[in-house]
């Protein structure tokens, strides 16, 4: 599969995810689940920032004996990734439990948010996989 097809399919999935979240807001005329989009868009950012900072660090003349070890910055970013993913699921659940949104809006916004997040992760994974053959998945 060449990269153009990948881009087209991924953008279609991304659009369907956004569509589900927007439908969950618009069908019930209640625009609280829109925050899910924001959370799931922020969710991949910490790992991207951590990997770019770590790759740009100069390791030439530093006595860094353990190159494979994980820095505290990366761990903090991983932890906040986990925090944001669970937040994106927990926010509609909280709204539903407090009777601020309906069941349909709950289901659609959770599925839509997960689609958006998985889409971004798969996008990053495809194109980092092409450039360098590393088998570690950073989501």
């Amino acid at each position: 599969m060449n990269s153009l097809n990948k881009i087209i399919f991924l953008s279609a999935f991304l659009a369907s995810g956004f569509l589900l979240i927007l439908l969950s807001c618009a069908l019930y005329n209640n625009y609280k689940p829109l925050w899910v989009i924001l959370i799931f868009l922020i969710a991949p950012l910490p790992n991207i920032m951590a990997s770019s900072i770590e790759s740009s660090r100069d390791t030439f003349l530093t006595f860094n004996d353990n190159e494979n070890s994980v820095t505290p910055l990366q761990e903090f970013c991983k932890s906040s990734t986990g925090f944001l993913i669970v937040s994106g699921v927990a926010l509609p659940l909280m709204f539903y439990h407090c009777k601020l949104i309906e069941v349909g809006a709950l289901i659609m916004s959770i599925i839509g948010g997960l689609i958006v997040y998985i889409d971004i992760v798969v996008f990053i994974w495809f194109f980092s996989h092409e450039e360098e053959e590393n088998d570690e998945f950073n989501f």
Partner: peptide
Amino acid sequence: GVYLSGALFAI
């Protein structure tokens, strides 16, 4: 484990 701890904190 690090991801899991972030998830637990979010819960």
